[in-house]
C-alpha cells in the first residue's frame, strides 16, 4: 500500500503551464483565449498531412511514431515511441488543451523534433532527444535550441527537388521566441 502523498495526483484542465509528473503519465494543460487563432492539431499519416477538426469537445489519440504538431503552439513535429492523448475543451471564451503521454511503453525512450517540406511532405530534418533519460519537460524546453539550429540552415529548410522553403520554426515556449519566431508562431 502506498503512502498518502503518492496515491493520487490531481490537475485541473486548463490550469497550469508546464509538464506535470503524475506517476507514469506526463500531463500538460493550458487555456487559451478562444479569440486567438485556432490551435489546431495536425498529424502526418502515411497518406499525408491531416488536420484533426477542432471540435469544442475532442478526445484524440496520436499513435506512437506518427508525427504531430499543434498549430501556433509548437513549430515542429514531435515523433515519439509513446502514444499522445490530445483533449480539447472549448467554451465561449476559452479553449483548454491537454496532452497526456504515458511513459510506461517499452517503446518510449527517444523522441524526435522533425520538420517536413510544406509542399511535398518529405522529411527535411529529424533530431533525437532522449526523453526517457532527461524528462518530458526537458524535451519541450530543449525545442528552442533545436528550432534555432533548423532555422539557421537554409539547406535543411529547402527540399532539393521541390524548392519550397520551410517557414521559420518556433519552439514550445512563446516567452523564449525571437521576433522572427514570434511572427512564425502567428503565421503557421
Amino acid at each position: 500500500m502506498n503512502d498518502d502523498a503518492v496515491i493520487s495526483h490531481r490537475l485541473a484542465m486548463g490550469q497550469g503551464d508546464g509538464w506535470h509528473d503524475a506517476s507514469r503519465y506526463q500531463i500538460w494543460t493550458k487555456s487559451f483565449d478562444a479569440a486567438l487563432p485556432d490551435p489546431a492539431f495536425f498529424e502526418r499519416r502515411p497518406e499525408g498531412l491531416i488536420a484533426i477538426p477542432s471540435r469544442p469537445r475532442l478526445f484524440h489519440v496520436a499513435p506512437a511514431e506518427i508525427p504531430y504538431r499543434i498549430k501556433h503552439l509548437f513549430g515542429f513535429y514531435r515523433i515519439s515511441g509513446s502514444d499522445t492523448i490530445f483533449i480539447r475543451v472549448q467554451n465561449e471564451s476559452s479553449i483548454s488543451l491537454t496532452l497526456i503521454v504515458g511513459t510506461h511503453a517499452q517503446t518510449f525512450g527517444t523522441d524526435f523534433y522533425a520538420w517536413f517540406c510544406p509542399q511535398c511532405g518529405r522529411e527535411l530534418a529529424r533530431v533525437p532527444f532522449q526523453t526517457k533519460r532527461f524528462g518530458m519537460a526537458a524535451y519541450w524546453s530543449e525545442a528552442a535550441a533545436r528550432v534555432r539550429e533548423f532555422n539557421s540552415s537554409d539547406a535543411r529548410r529547402i527540399w532539393p527537388s521541390c524548392t519550397a522553403e520551410h517557414p521559420i520554426a518556433y519552439g514550445f515556449e512563446p516567452d523564449a521566441d525571437t521576433p522572427e519566431e514570434r511572427a512564425a508562431r502567428e503565421a503557421w
Binding site: 498529424e43 497518406e47 498531412l49 477538426p53 471540435r55 475532442l58 489519440v61 510544406p118 511535398c120 503557421w188
Partner: peptide, 22 residues
C-alpha cells in the same frame, strides 16, 4: 498565411476513431 499541403480525403477514411468522445 503560410499553410502546409493537406490531403484532400475525409478524415474518417484515414482515422476511423479520430474523436473518442464522438
Amino acid at each position: 498565411m503560410i499553410s502546409e499541403v493537406q490531403i484532400d480525403v475525409p478524415i474518417e477514411k484515414i482515422i476511423s476513431d479520430w474523436d473518442f468522445f464522438d
